[in-house]
Simulated assay, not measured.
Amino acid sequence: MPEGHSVHRIARQFRTNFQGHRVAASSPQGRFAEGASILDGRTLTDVKAVGKQMFLDFDDDLWLRVHLGMYGAWDFAGEITSDATIASANGRMGQTNQHGTDLAAVILDEAGENSLHSIGAPRKTRVRMSEQTKGLSGEDWDTFPPPPVGAVRLRLLTEHAVADLRGPTACEILDGERVNAVIAKLGPDPLLDPSQAAEDRFTAVVRKKPTPIGLLLMDQSVVSGIGNVYRAELLFRSRINPHTPGKQIPEELVRGLWQDWARLLPIGVETGQMMTMDDLRGEDYRKAMASRDDRHWVYKREGLPCRVCGTNIVLEEMGARKLYWCPNCQR
């Protein structure tokens, strides 16, 4: 499932390339024909990302809510630019990702995780999608827009750019009141609200719960945006056993989890990758940016020795999702 950094990257794409423009909306698949007809011809005026959900504001207090779920993705084509790309070219990505590595260009991930043209789908789905939609970036098409390929739930088209939505869990039209009601039920998102009050809210909720912290971090009413990868990595970085009840974790460790999430999330947005290892420099950093195998502490490393203590990383199921952790470092 796409995690919070991906949704914030999608929101940035829409702000940069679609906000302020009138859009033609259609549902090539046909499953969102009524909603598309409501949006057709309206202007995109605002974009909000909260955790794993995105809200597009059109005129007359009409909002499009999208939750990508397990298989959803946005594909972009046309004259697509990104403020994240501009930041990278100016060196800000290297500075944001610290560790003394100043990058002058984006290092592409081998699985396309930091793609500007398709954001959100699981890697296997994206590879299949890429094979079906060769040239989706617009480079190989004689005319614009390129024809929709496959099950496109919603197409949003401007004079110069197009966004195709595939396979979302939720895609619906709401008014402002209902949008506020949805957001009110979500936990804090450090990119939306970096305040002390947000940290206090997260800390208070976690420390009241008898629920294992490994489940609490995945609960979007507790904190927004954390998924399977960030859960495993945050808990390892904090050396917290994922089975520990929230109420038994010392306050300083709970606050540390929030502060680490607030630190890692912007790095994910800037790079397009869930970079969770610290102090990588030079070639080590470049390898990590190019391959998931080199940028995580425990995620997808079951049976391999812990990078810190050498104990084999354990894989188990928690909350119907795979959990990776080190039984020695996280005792």
Rank of each mutant, 00 (worst) to 15 (best):
V106G: 01
G72V: 03
V66K: 12
A111C: 06
M70P: 01
M70Y: 07
A84V: 09
A104Q: 10
D83E: 14
T101A: 13
A104D: 12
M70G: 01
I86H: 05
V106L: 09
V106Q: 06
H99T: 10
G112F: 00
G72Y: 02
D102Q: 11
T81F: 12
D109K: 04
T96I: 14
E110F: 00
T96N: 10
R92V: 05
Q95W: 10
A73P: 00
G72K: 03
I86N: 04
T96R: 11
A111D: 14
M93A: 09
G91T: 07
A73T: 08
Q95R: 08
E110L: 06
G69W: 12
A84F: 07
V106H: 03
D83Q: 09
E110S: 02
H67L: 13
I86F: 07
Y71H: 12
F76R: 01
M70L: 15
N97I: 15
Q98D: 10
V106R: 13
A77G: 14
I80G: 00
Q98G: 04
H99Q: 13
T81S: 15
F76Q: 01
I86P: 00
L103A: 04
A87F: 08
N90Y: 08
A104G: 10
E110H: 02
R65I: 09
A111V: 06
I86Y: 04
E113A: 03
T101H: 11
D102K: 05
H99V: 08
Q98E: 15
E110P: 00
